[in-house]
Simulated assay, not measured.
Amino acid sequence: MAILDAACALFIAHGYEGTSIDMIAEKAEVSRQTIYNGFTSKEDLFLAMVNDAIRQILMPVLTPDQPAQSLRQALHVFGKGILELTMSADAIALQRLVIVEALRFPQLGAALFYDGVERVERELASFLQTHRQFTGKDSRLAARLFLSMVTRPSLFQVQLGIVEYPDQTSIDTHLDATIDLFLHGVAAQTG
Rank of each mutant, 00 (worst) to 15 (best):
M1R: 10
M1W: 06
A2D: 15
A2I: 12
A2K: 10
A2C: 11
I3W: 01
D5W: 05
A6Q: 14
C8D: 15
C8K: 15
G15L: 10
I21R: 03
I21S: 04
I21P: 01
D22V: 05
I24N: 00
E26Q: 10
E26C: 04
A28T: 06
Q33N: 07
T34D: 12
T34R: 08
K42L: 02
F46V: 14
F46N: 15
A48T: 12
I54T: 02
M59E: 15
M59D: 15
P64V: 08
D65V: 03
Q66N: 15
A68C: 12
R72A: 13
Q73W: 02
L75A: 01
F78P: 08
F78N: 07
F78K: 03
S88W: 00
D90S: 12
L94D: 11
L94T: 13
L94W: 03
V98A: 03
V100D: 13
E101Y: 00
R104S: 02
A111G: 09
L112Q: 02
Y114I: 14
V120W: 00
E121N: 14
R122H: 00
E123N: 12
F127Y: 12
F127V: 11
L128R: 04
L128P: 03
L128H: 00
Q129I: 05
T130G: 10
S139C: 07
R140S: 07
L141G: 06
L141F: 01
A142G: 04
R144D: 13
L145Q: 06
F146V: 07
F146S: 06
R152P: 03
P153L: 02
S154W: 06
S154T: 08
V158F: 05
G161H: 02
G161L: 08
G161W: 04
Y165V: 15
Q168W: 07
T169D: 03
T169Q: 08
S170T: 13
D172Y: 00
T173K: 05
H174F: 07
H174G: 08
L175W: 02
L175P: 00
D176C: 10
D176S: 07
T178S: 09
F182L: 10
G185K: 08
A188V: 05
